[in-house]
C-alpha cells in the first residue's frame, strides 16, 4: 500500500506521461485516419492507392517494430527529435490505419445514392464528403473509434521500453527501490483503467448524443 503514497510523484509522472502520449497520439491518429479515409474514397486513383498502401503497411507491422523503425530509422536520415515525439509519431501513424478503416466502414453504411444526389446538385467531392457522407458515417463509427483509442492508450506502454516516461515504465524504478512488484502492478493497472474508462465515458456520451440513426 505504501508503494503508492511513498512514490506518488513517480506514479504521477508516469501517469501524466501516458496521458500525454495518448492524447497527442490520438489527435494525430484521428487527423491522419481522417485524411487517409478521404484518400481511400477519392475519385483520383493515385490517392486511393496511397491510402490503401498506408493502411496495409501500418496495420500489418508489429507496433514494436514500428517503434524501432521510427526511433532508430529517422535519426539516420538526420531527423533527430525527442523520444516523446518519436513515440507519438509511431503510435499515431500506427493507429491512424485502424481509424481509417473504421471510418471507411462507416462511409460504406451511407447509401451511395445520397452521394450521387449531392454530386448531381453540383457539390464537389469534399463538400459531398463533409456535408453528406461523413456526418452520417460518424454515427456508426463512434464506438469502433473509441475501442481503437483505448487500444492506443494501452499500446503506449511500449514507449516505456524506449526511455519515454510513462506509466508502465515506473515499475522498473520502484522495483529497484525494493517495493512489492505485485502492488506496483496493481496501481499501474489502476492507472490504465482510469485512462481507458475516461475514454469509454467520453465515447459513451458521444454515442448517446450522436450515435442514434434517425
Amino acid at each position: 500500500m505504501d508503494v503508492l503514497t511513498d512514490n506518488f510523484s513517480t506514479f504521477g509522472d508516469g501517469f501524466l506521461g501516458t496521458v500525454e502520449l495518448t492524447v497527442y497520439a490520438s489527435l494525430l491518429a484521428l487527423a491522419l485516419g481522417f485524411v487517409m479515409a478521404s484518400f481511400r474514397v477519392a475519385p483520383v486513383g493515385s490517392f486511393r492507392v496511397f491510402g490503401a498502401v498506408w493502411v496495409a503497411v501500418l496495420r500489418n507491422t508489429p507496433l514494436t517494430l514500428l517503434f524501432f523503425a521510427v526511433l532508430l530509422g529517422l535519426p539516420r536520415f538526420g531527423l533527430v527529435l525527442p523520444f516523446e515525439v518519436f513515440a507519438v509519431l509511431a503510435l499515431g501513424c500506427y493507429t491512424s490505419a485502424f481509424i481509417c478503416e473504421a471510418l471507411r466502414s462507416g462511409i460504406n453504411t451511407v447509401p451511395t445514392g445520397q452521394g450521387e444526389a449531392a454530386r448531381s446538385l453540383g457539390m464537389t467531392f469534399s463538400q459531398t464528403l463533409s456535408g453528406v457522407v461523413l456526418p452520417q458515417a460518424f454515427r456508426s463509427v463512434i464506438s469502433p473509434v473509441g475501442s481503437t483509442l483505448i487500444a492506443l492508450a494501452k499500446n503506449s506502454a511500449i514507449a516505456g521500453a524506449f526511455s519515454v516516461t510513462e506509466l508502465l515504465g515506473t515499475y522498473k524504478t520502484l522495483g529497484e527501490l525494493g517495493y512489492s512488484i505485485i502492488w506496483t502492478f496493481v496501481w499501474i493497472a489502476l492507472g490504465y483503467l482510469i485512462i481507458t474508462l475516461a475514454i469509454s465515458a467520453v465515447f459513451n456520451i458521444l454515442e448517446k448524443r450522436w450515435g442514434v440513426a434517425r
Binding site: 447509401p111 445514392g113 445520397q114 450521387e116 444526389a117 449531392a118 453528406v132 456526418p135 452520417q136 454515427r139 440513426a213 434517425r214
Partner: peptide, 10 residues
C-alpha cells in the same frame, strides 16, 4: 431525380 429519392437522411 432518382427512383429511390436519395434525400439526405440526417
Amino acid at each position: 431525380v432518382f427512383q429511390s429519392f436519395n434525400l439526405f437522411a440526417h
